[in-house]
Amino acid sequence: MVQAIIDPTSGAAPGATAVIAAAPLTSLEGLRVGLLENTKRNAADVLHVIGDALQRTDGVASLVPYTKHNFALPLPDDLLEELEASCDAVVIGIGDCGSCSASAVADGIMLESRGIPTAVICTTAFDVTAGAMAKLKGRADFPYLRTEHPIANLDAEQVVERGELLAEVVRARLLGTDEAVGA
């Protein structure tokens, strides 16, 4: 009798069950917006430009900066809880590498499942892996934001320019009026 050949992928989980999306906000006015940067070059600066723009145009009450030190891994529980307690919405970025782009999307999905609306920013070079992680986490259509690659070598002026552009799509994302268009 011929023996069956073992399928080596049978142990890999087929993907998470569907998880909930956070309801979009009606306005950013008076809200606390978290800026979760992942230590990648220019990430914190771009997020700050976005935050400043939203304060100026939308009356965001406060910006709450956070750093995710291990950019490749999911958010640690304590940081997740702090974000949940201290922010009404969180901007996450910049996913501009193989592990950190996927991980940024996973963090966004995790926060949204706790009811916190997010705007996750990845560079276009990592569209496939960001999308693959969204699917793996049960939100194949997760509307993360795409921005042109690369970010790391933008100069100060270009950082401001990029941040201002992104502020528009971040607002649209948080208010649910977007089509997840890139900047």
Binding site: P8, T9, A12, C97, G98, A102, V128, T129, A132, L136
Partner: peptide, 12 residues
């Protein structure tokens, strides 16, 4: 096969 890391998908 166990992690499901295929080139140019989740492996970058």
């Amino acid at each position: 096969n166990s992690f499901g890391l295929l080139p140019n998908e989740l492996e970058q």
